[in-house]
Design a protein around this nucleic acid. Structure first.
Length: 197
DNA sequence: AGCGGGATTTTCT
DNA sequence: GAAAATCCCGCTT
């Protein structure tokens, strides 16, 4: 298990893992095209937290959240979008870290092509991946990726050394109506791809 | 620059 | 039947 640094890292609780994932990289190899991005914004969700999908217990949708750490939890929302999480904590405990924004490192052209920004004038700059549903479109993560083991291709999470605490900002979460004061959103200070200041 | 609504489907009350 | 871990477009200041 020495080589399983990823699982060891993700075995902690979501609020500990969330800031630790900043600076790590997620990649999706699709048709020989490498899509890779650096995680710059995350949010922690736990079963003891009223804002979490896992709060009301294990259901068909949240099943993956209660499974072993290191898997991908992809959920469908607002009738048209997907958002992806990294499952954390011990098996049987429903917790995960929502990936809210990434900074493209490789395959940016393909990411732009994957974004279905309707009849948009143009997606300029950071708008390509500065939001949970946006990065899922860019990386082409959908229902099929739900439950995927992030140690295995084609979708992998690459661990990087921890960042300095001074470079991480902690605030309340976005887009929720419960537990709105909990400081479980984390992002890289001064990174332009962060979804909202 | 900022606010308001529509899209569209799964999930739970 | 309503709300949802969102995004985009159009209208108003």
């Amino acid at each position: 298990m020495k080589s399983d640094g990823l699982i060891e890292l993700l075995s902690d609780t979501a609020d500990i893992v969330a800031p630790r994932l900043l600076g790590c990289e997620i990649e999706h190899v699709l048709d020989d095209q490498l899509l890779r991005g650096r995680v710059v914004e995350t949010e922690a969700y736990d079963q003891t937290d009223a804002a979490s999908h896992s709060y009301r217990g294990r259901t068909p949708r949240t099943d993956v959240m209660f499974g072993p750490p290191g898997r991908l939890y992809v959920y469908f929302t607002y009738g048209m979008y997907y958002c992806c999480n990294v499952v954390t904590g011990p098996e049987g405990h429903g917790s995960a870290v929502l990936l809210r924004a990434i900074e493209p490192l490789s395959g940016e052209d393909a990411m732009l092509a994957n974004r279905q920004a309707a009849s948009k004038a143009e997606i300029n700059g950071v708008q390509i991946t500065n939001g949970p549903a946006k990065l899922c479109q860019a990386l082409r993560l959908d229902k099929q990726a739900n439950g995927h083991d992030l140690r295995q291709p084609p979708i992998r999470l690459v661990v990087k050394p921890p960042l300095k605490p001074a470079d991480i900002v902690s605030t309340s979460r976005i887009g929720i109506s419960q537990a709105t004061d909990a400081p479980w959103r984390f992002y890289l200070k001064n990174n332009p791809y962060v979804s909202k200041l």
